[in-house]
Design a binder for these strands. Structure first.
Length: 808
RNA sequence: GCCCGGGUGGUGGAAUUGGUAGACACGACGGACUUAAAAUCCGUUGACUUACAAGUCAUGGGGGUUCAAGUCCCCCCCCGGGCACCA
């Protein structure tokens, strides 16, 4: 190779790979399948940014590395093209999403993705907006509906006034819409839900066994949020029974009042006549508050007395019932017993409204003043009748609940924070929910043979904020007939949250050849669950949780025979630019295309991976790509024969080169396996530095270097491999092997410490026993001067590493 | 408030089980080549005292354990992330 010109080399190998089908996978014939999945992008008009490429390249390295290790790797790619991102952009630019999306996909694939050198099998591409795909998204919805996992109900849901649609709880961040940051309000609407809570326990417990990034597991655990406690039945004085949830049944004797959520259905009935006006005014006031206002940090407690009283089942005590918005309808039973002595929120409320505070748990010190501050620590029960003296949080919880359980007034329960997934969106750009409403037959799912319910082309698809989707304005779509009775019927006009589209795309990849089924059973059995999934942690409670849930749901419906979709999930880090977060508003978004054009995809890939730890993220600095190109230039010069030159055959002659060769193979393999790409590249630099300085001209070393480089810089690795005389792609070769014995130098440098401080270093043959080293150490000049006049009281000896002499 | 990560030279970042802190780079400085520049190559580069000898101090701060601590323990500060009036 005359001079390394990436544009020539990369174009050559792109064509060669395409011509030879190098990146294609024989899905049925594969012997060692490895499904290497990366989170698919939404094809935005802005194009791929460095963050996308950082994610993809890190994943591609695993795919290529596994392939060199003999796996049949399947590395597909697709486009998540439904949803508000595409729709909002279309609205802004005035171009219809149906036209914009295919163009963006084309540009993503042809001018960006293919140029980065991803080992993608493009014969299995997926586009969530194509009818062949969303037909099966709708089929999944119908399947869930038929199995009781999808239902419609009127509920107080999260409404985004900016996007003019409802949102799932997962899409509300700190009370704001995750997309447009508008303050989310509550709205009473009939919506479709998926029963995510049905598998809350499994989704939580399975996490412990999963090979996933810990921070992703933690995020899911927090989101699912389990708390164990008891449901206790109270009775309203002269009224019905009701139950409350508590994690502290041991404090039942300390309950001095009850609180109902303003939305609780019993409130109207229980309110005393004299209190009706006040209670009603309070409830109306709360309903007018946004989520942010209601949950604002440090907000003072509010509430109102209903005039009603409840009877405490443990002691028959009559305690007042209040309504306050610090009790949420959506969690537990929407009513609580308040124990101000041992709960900080109840304490605050009791102080404000002058309610009694009764201590029932006393800590070991016994000096906590519950009138001043709630005591939430461990302690023993007091003022609790026969239960006095019990260890509160263990024996107390058990004994008191057990006692009530015998009287059928309590049961042990577990509550989850997770809510059902609100699926309806009052927007245009999504898969229509395949349901028809008939006066006679009620809710009727669209029969499988009539799927897909095509999304009609609407020229005016703006959301109008009426609470109805723009599709409701299209009579031809809205009015239809019932598949059961043939009578007139109305279609559901809401579309589905596009997270449903992305919850199953990876089942579709292997099966894109089939239009009569969502996924082929044989291919699914062979390729799934996904072996490795790489993506961003921002989807921990969105995509990753939804797709875990759907997998379990499809298993329960009999369509899959496994419960978890991803064997291993790795969350990559985030990229910043010169230490600052990249964002459109800052105007510091890096366009990868220019770097690739100037320095080549290989240099760009290498720099992305070198600038920081893949799992932690990195700081993109100008000049980095250029420096990496310089390294690849040096690598070419070191690895390739010059004009008219022949490289030495056979293993290298000198021990030092053998050491570098073997230890680099070992280290790079270990580093790639643990996603430590930056250190793998550093190892390659060290090997190249050794080759350059010592003028190593050896075919075996160059061949190993090409294969070590191949996952990181695939085009250049191919070029070098070919120049070394190989007729086939380097990806049809194998990962180089190393000799463990050669990974260690025959001589090692011992560090000699005196009292823990380094005082000298000596070169010794490896593996010497302590007795032979000692005299050599004591004879060392630099060390001797620290020993004169002192007594050696202790000698620490770490084989092949160091000797520490403790002197006095 | 609770739960996870983090804090290392001028900069990005290394450092399997406690065992030479700063690998590998970037930048800077000096030199070679050149009419000159770019590119390339060679050298120096944590701070301080200083003679390139030698030493002292250094991994957010303060204690501790240990022959030995970036790494383990306790307290505190700062940054990033998750949850949060969830009973």
């Amino acid at each position: 190779m005359a001079k390394y010109d990436p544009s020539v080399v990369e174009a050559k190998w792109r064509d060669r790979w395409e011509r030879d089908g190098t990146d294609r996978t024989d899905l049925r014939g594969a012997k060692r399948p490895f499904y290497n999945l990366m989170m698919f992008p939404y094809p935005s008009a802005e194009g791929l940014h460095v963050g996308n490429l950082f994610a993809f390249v890190g994943s591609d390295i695993q795919g290529r590395f596994h392939r060199l290790q003999g796996y049949d790797v399947f590395e597909p790619m697709g486009f998540d093209a439904f949803g508000m991102h595409s729709e909002n952009f279309a609205l802004k630019t005035g171009r219809h999403p149906a036209e914009m999306v295919p163009r963006n996909i084309e540009r993503f694939r042809e001018t960006q993705l293919k140029k980065v050198g991803l080992m993608v099998d493009w014969s299995h591409q997926v586009d969530t907006t194509s009818p062949e795909y969303y037909r099966w998204t709708q089929w999944i919805f119908v399947t869930l509906y038929k199995n009781g996992l999808a239902y419609r109900k009127k509920a107080s849901v999260n409404w985004c006034p900016g996007c003019k649609t409802v949102l799932a709880a997962e899409q509300v961040i700190d009370g704001q819409c995750e997309r447009c940051q508008s303050e989310v309000t509550k709205k009473e609407m009939a919506q479709w839900f998926l029963r995510t809570t049905a598998f809350a326990r499994e989704l939580l417990e399975e996490l412990d066994r999963m090979d996933w990034s810990e921070r992703t597991k933690v995020a899911q655990r927090n989101w699912i949020g389990r708390s164990q406690g008891a449901e206790v039945t109270f009775r309203l004085e002269g009224g019905p029974e009701f139950s409350i949830f508590t994690t502290r049944p041991d404090t039942l004797f300390g309950a001095t009042y009850m609180v109902f959520s303003p939305e609780h259905p019993l409130v109207g009935e229980m309110t005393a006549d004299g209190r009706r006006e006040a209670v009603e005014a309070y409830r109306q006031g709360v309903l007018g508050l946004s989520e942010v206002e209601r949950q604002a940090e440090g907000r003072e407690k509010t509430g109102v007395f209903t005039g009603a009283h409840a009877i405490n089942p443990v002691n028959g005590e009559r305690i007042p019932v209040w309504v306050a918005d610090y009790v949420l309808m959506g969690y537990g039973t929407g009513a609580i017993m308040a124990v101000p002595a041992h709960d900080v929120r109840d304490h605050e409320f009791a102080v404000k409204f002058g309610l009694p505070i009764r201590e029932v748990v006393r800590g070991a010190g016994g000096d906590a003043d519950v009138q001043r501050e709630a005591f939430v620590g461990d302690g023993r029960l007091v003022n609790s009748g026969e239960f006095d003296g019990l260890e509160a949080k263990t024996e107390g919880i058990y004994s008191i609940t057990k006692m009530l359980e015998m009287r059928s007034l309590a049961k042990f329960t577990t509550n989850y924070r997770l809510r059902d997934w609100c699926l309806s969106r009052q927007r245009y750009w999504g898969p229509p929910i395949p349901i028809v409403y008939c006066d006679k037959c009620g809710q009727v799912p669209v029969p499988e043979k009539d799927l897909p319910v095509l999304l009609p082309r609407l020229d005016d698809y703006r959301p109008d904020g009426s609470g109805l989707s723009p599709l409701a304005r299209d009579e031809g779509f809205h009015k239809t007939s019932c598949s059961q009775c043939g009578g007139p019927a109305l279609r559901e006009t809401d579309v589905s949250d596009n997270f449903l589209c992305s919850a199953w795309y990876f089942y579709r990849y292997p099966s894109t050849d089939f239009d009569d089924r969502p996924f082929d059973p044989e291919l699914t059995r062979k390729w799934l669950p996904v072996d490795l999934y790489v993506g961003g942690n921002e989807h921990a409670v969105l995509h990753l949780l939804y797709s875990r849930w759907l997998c379990r749901a499809l298993q329960k419906c009999g369509h899959l025979d496994f419960a978890e979709p991803y064997e291993k999930f790795v969350a990559h880090g985030m990229i910043v630019y010169n230490g600052a977060k990249m964002s459109k508003s800052r105007g510091n978004i890096i366009n990868p295309d220019e770097y690739i054009r100037e320095f080549g995809a290989d240099s760009f890939r290498m720099y992305l991976m070198f600038m920081g730890a893949y799992l932690e993220g990195g700081d993109f600095r100008d000049g980095g790509v250029k420096a990496m190109k310089a390294f690849l230039d040096r690598l070419c010069a070191a690895a390739l024969p010059g004009e008219g030159e022949e490289l030495d055959g056979g293993p290298p002659a000198d021990a030092e080169t053998l050491f570098w060769l073997n230890s680099t193979i070992k280290a790079v393999g270990a580093d790639l396996a643990r996603f430590s790409y930056n250190t793998a590249i550093a190892r390659l630099m060290e090997l190249v530095n050794h080759m350059t300085r010592n003028k190593v001209r050896n075919r075996e070393v160059s061949g190993a270097l090409a294969r070590l480089l191949a996952p990181l810089a695939p085009h250049l690795a191919e070029e070098i491999w070919e120049a070394l005389g190989h007729g086939e792609s380097v990806f049809r070769s194998s990962w180089p092997e190393f000799d463990e014995a050669a990974c260690h130098r025959p001589e090692v440098e011992y560090v000699i410490q005196v009292n823990g401080k380094v005082r000298g270093k000596i070169l010794l043959a490896a593996g010497l026993p302590q007795e032979e080293i000692e005299p050599l150490v004591l004879a060392n000049e630099a060390v001797a001067k620290w020993l004169s006049g002192k007594t050696v009281v202790k000698k620490i000896y770490v084989p092949d590493k160091l000797v520490n002499l403790v002197v006095r």
